[in-house]
């Protein structure tokens, strides 16, 4: 598979965040610790599974229809405990998911026990796929 992710496309997809906090916020959020290119490479490694993640996310959103909005899901997925979008998003995601499992913030999707944040991440991916902001297949 070729990597068709470009910085422009990444910004376009993450431009959803700008709707929440402005383009400047987006740049600050995702460049604080990493270059865009590094970030794109990381996302690319998740991409082989994006179709699966999207399907799961669609099932989640069917059970939580009130969250079918990227503007709602992005901060729910990536914000820290103070509600801020800052630092490395993947590290924050890691932290939040593990905290979910520790504290019982779980959700069942067709019997699967998942972190609520994982479900929201999947929902976000599903919405991005449906809006054409993630390309599959590449």
């Amino acid at each position: 598979m070729s990597n068709t992710w470009t910085r422009r496309k990444m910004l376009a997809s993450l431009g959803l965040v700008s709707a929440v906090g402005g383009a400047g916020l987006t740049l600050r959020y995702f460049t604080h610790e990493r270059d865009y290119e590094e970030w794109v490479v990381e996302v690319d490694e998740v991409l082989p599974h994006v179709k699966d993640i999207s399907a799961l996310g669609r099932r989640y959103l069917e059970q939580a229809p009130g969250e079918s909005d990227p503007e709602l899901l992005i901060p729910l997925t990536f914000a820290d405990e103070d509600g801020n979008l800052r630092g490395n998003p993947w590290k924050q995601l890691d932290k939040t998911i593990r905290l979910d499992y520790s504290t019982g913030n779980i959700f069942r999707v067709d019997g699967w026990v998942l972190s609520r944040t994982e479900c929201r991440f999947s929902g976000l991916v599903a919405l991005m796929m449906e809006r054409g902001e993630l390309q599959w297949p590449r």
Partner: peptide, 8 residues
């Protein structure tokens, strides 16, 4: 799907 998410 779950495997994909989890492994990803």
């Amino acid at each position: 799907e779950v495997g994909g998410l989890a492994r990803g």
